[in-house]
Design a protein around this nucleic acid. Structure first.
Lengths: 336, 336
DNA sequence: AATTCGCTGGCAATCGATTACACACGCGGA
DNA sequence: TCCGCGTGTGTAATCGATTGCCAGCGAATT
C-alpha cells in the first residue's frame, strides 16, 4: 500500500537516501539547491514518510495511549475529546482504550500500549489499589501521567481537580441555601476521587455544622441507577436530610429523577448537587447545580507533563497539578 | 525500552531467530522439543514480539482506524465502545479520531490513518457530499466501511439502520396516539441519515394522512440547543402540530425541555419522538420515545465486513447492511 | 548402493527510514 | 607544497521481526 519510498525520491532527485532524509527531516545541513530538488521530487511523487519504519528506527511513534475506566461516562468522553485536541496541536495521535472499569482489562490495555511503543500514557486508573501494580510497572517503562484519579503507592505525574476544595464550595453552597443536614451519595471508596470527595464532604460538613451520619452515607457506583436506588433507600428509611451531595453527575441525575417520581421536591424539600458538569446536567429537571471540571485545562496540563517527561526522563520530581474547580449553580439548590 | 528481542530468545534456546519466529508465530513446522525449548526461553525472558518491527515486515498493524463526526454525541460514543469491543475479540486495536464535524479535519484524519498503515478504516462521514473525495480516496487504498451515515458517489461497504423503515414506525406510532399533524425537527440535509430520516418522515406522514408542511420542517444541527430553538420558533409561529418528530435524541431532548419551560404538555399537547436511544433519553422529563439503534450489531457487522475485505481485497461487491431498528416506547408519546 | 523425498533448521535478504562514519572537495595558513 | 579543517554527501549498519531458499539428514524407493 505504501507505494513511494525514500529510495524513489532519492533516485528521482539524483541523491542518496541519506540526503533525502536529511533534507526532509532536517537533521543536518544540506545545501539549499539540493534541499530544494529533494523537496520537489518528494512533492511530485507524493512521498510521505512511513511512520512504522521511522518508529522502528528511532523508537518513537508520536502516539500516546490513553486508558479510561469507561468511555460511557460523559465526563471521560469530554476528557478524551480534550486530550485529543491537545495532542492534535503537537501532531500526535491518540490510541484510546476502555478498561471497562476492570483492573484486569486495564492492566492488559496498559501492557498492549507499552508493547506498541506509544511515547507516553495517560491513564485514569479505575481502582485505587488494584490498579497500582499495572500502573507502577507501566510508569517504570514509559512517561505516564494519571488523570483525575490516581492510585496509591506510585510517584507519577498527576493532573486533576482539588476534590476537597470542590466539596468545600458544595457544602458551603447548600448550607447557605439553608441545609442543616446532608446525605452523601457516592461510590465505594475504591479510588482516589471517591475517597477525597467523601473526605472533603465530611470535613466541611463538620466545619459548617451540617449534620451527617453513617445512615446518610450511601456508597455504590458511578451510575444513574445507583443514584435512583440510593434515594429509594433514603426515602424508605424515614428521615430525609436537607441536601443530597452526590459524588458525580450520573448519581445526581438518578437522584433527581428518583425524587421526582416520589414527589420529593427539588430543591424545595432537598437540594441536590452533582460533580463533573457533564452536558446533560443542564437538561435535568431541575437543572443540576454541580462542580465544573475544567477538562480542557486538565488535558493541556497532562499533555504538557508528558512532553516534559519525554524530554528528560530520568530524575525529575513527579508533579501533582490540582486545579481548583468552580461551582456551577443551577436550580437544584436554593440560593440566598 | 523494548528490551528483549527475538535474538535474545534465539541465543537462549540455542537456535536461530528464524526458528524462534516459526516456533512462536507458527508459520511452518518446528519439531516439538525445539518448540518447547523456544517457548520456555521466551517465557523466561518475558519476550513479546515488537509490533512495530512486525508491522514493517508484514505491513499489517492489527489496528483499525475509526473516524466519527463528534465523540461528544453519545450515540457515537456508544458506537465507538461497541466497535472497540468487537475488535477486542479479534485482538485488534482501535485508533480513534474525532472529525469535529468538519470535512477538512476529517480528510486530514483519514490521511493520517492511511499513513499509519492501519489495516482498515471505519468512518461515519460528517458530510454527505463534502466528505466524498476523502472517503473515496481512502477507500481506494484500504478496506473501508461506512457506519451509520454514508456519502454519495462511492461504492464501499456500509452498515447502519434502515432510516426509512424506522421513520415509518415512528409515524405509525404517533398516528396511533392520535396525532393528525406533525413537525419534523431535523438537521440540515448534509448527510445520508438526515436525508433519509427526513424523506422517511414525509413519505409515511403522507401514507398515514398526517399533516405536514414546510413551516413545520425545521432543519438545524444535531444538538440540544437546536431542539430548544426550534420549539421556540414553532411556538411563536402560532399553530402547533400534534407531534414533533426529531431526527435524533439530542434534538428531542432539547425539544422536550423547551416544551416544559413554555408549559406545553408532553405528550398531552404534543407528542415528541427521538432517534438513537442514547442513555439519557431515559432521564428526560418525560422519558423519551425513540428509535433504538443496535450499536452492538452495527459494530459487529462492520468489523466482520472489514475482516472480509482484508481477505480478498480485489473484486468484491460492496455490501450494504441495513438493520431494522425497533421503536422504544416511553412516556413522551401517547399509547392506544 | 544410489537416488529421491520430506522434514527441520539456518543463512541472509527484506521491510523503510535514520544516522555513525568515512570520504571528497575546497580553502586558508604554515 | 603540504596539512588541517569544515562542509556536504554517500555508504552501509541498524532497528526487530519474517520468510525464501538452501543444506543436512534420515527414511523410503528403485
Amino acid at each position: 500500500m505504501q507505494r513511494v519510498t525514500i529510495a524513489d525520491v532519492a533516485r528521482r532527485a539524483g541523491v542518496s537516501t541519506a540526503t533525502v532524509s536529511r533534507a526532509l527531516s532536517g537533521g543536518r545541513k544540506v545545501s539549499s539547491d539540493v534541499a530544494e530538488r529533494v523537496r520537489a521530487a518528494a512533492r511530485e511523487l507524493g512521498y510521505e514518510v512511513n511512520p512504522i519504519a521511522r518508529a522502528l528506527r528511532v523508537s518513537r511513534t508520536d502516539t500516546v495511549g490513553m486508558v479510561v475506566p469507561s468511555i460511557r461516562n460523559p465526563f471521560f468522553t469530554a476528557l478524551v475529546e480534550s486530550v485529543e485536541h491537545a495532542l492534535g496541536a503537537d501532531g500526535k495521535e491518540l490510541l484510546l482504550c476502555d478498561a471497562q472499569s476492570d483492573p484486569d482489562t486495564e492492566a492488559k490495555r496498559l501492557d498492549a500500549l507499552v508493547t506498541r511503543n506509544v511515547d507516553g500514557i495517560i491513564v485514569s486508573p479505575c481502582h485505587g489499589t488494584d490498579s497500582t501494580p499495572a500502573v507502577q510497572r507501566t510508569a517504570e517503562r514509559l512517561p505516564l501521567v494519571q488523570l483525575d484519579r490516581f492510585v496509591g503507592g506510585t510517584s507519577t505525574d498527576w493532573v486533576g481537580v482539588d476534590d476537597i476544595a470542590a466539596m468545600r464550595s458544595v457544602v458551603e453552597h447548600v448550607h447557605a441555601g439553608g441545609a442543616r443536614s446532608a446525605a452523601y451519595l457516592g461510590a465505594r471508596l475504591t479510588n482516589s476521587s471517591s475517597e477525597l470527595r467523601h473526605a472533603g464532604f465530611l470535613r466541611h460538613a463538620n466545619e459548617f455544622d451540617v449534620e451527617t451520619g453513617p445512615q446518610w452515607t450511601l456508597l455504590g457506583d458511578y451510575s444513574v441507577e445507583w443514584g435512583e436506588r440510593a434515594v429509594g433507600m433514603l426515602a424508605d428509611s424515614g428521615r430525609l436530610p436537607d441536601a443530597l451531595v452526590c459524588a458525580d453527575d450520573l448519581i445526581a441525575l438518578g437522584a433527581v429523577r428518583a425524587c421526582r417520581t416520589r414527589g420529593i421536591g427539588v430543591p424545595a424539600r432537598v437540594q441536590v448537587t452533582g460533580f463533573d458538569n457533564i452536558e446533560f446536567t443542564r437538561l435535568a429537571e431541575p437543572p443540576l447545580t454541580t462542580v465544573d471540571q475544567p477538562t480542557r485545562r486538565i488535558a493541556d496540563e497532562a499533555v504538557r507533563l508528558l512532553a516534559d517527561a519525554a524530554g528528560g526522563p530520568a530524575a525529575r520530581d513527579a508533579a501533582h497539578v490540582a486545579l481548583v474547580p468552580k461551582l456551577v449553580v443551577r436550580d437544584s439548590t436554593r440560593t440566598g
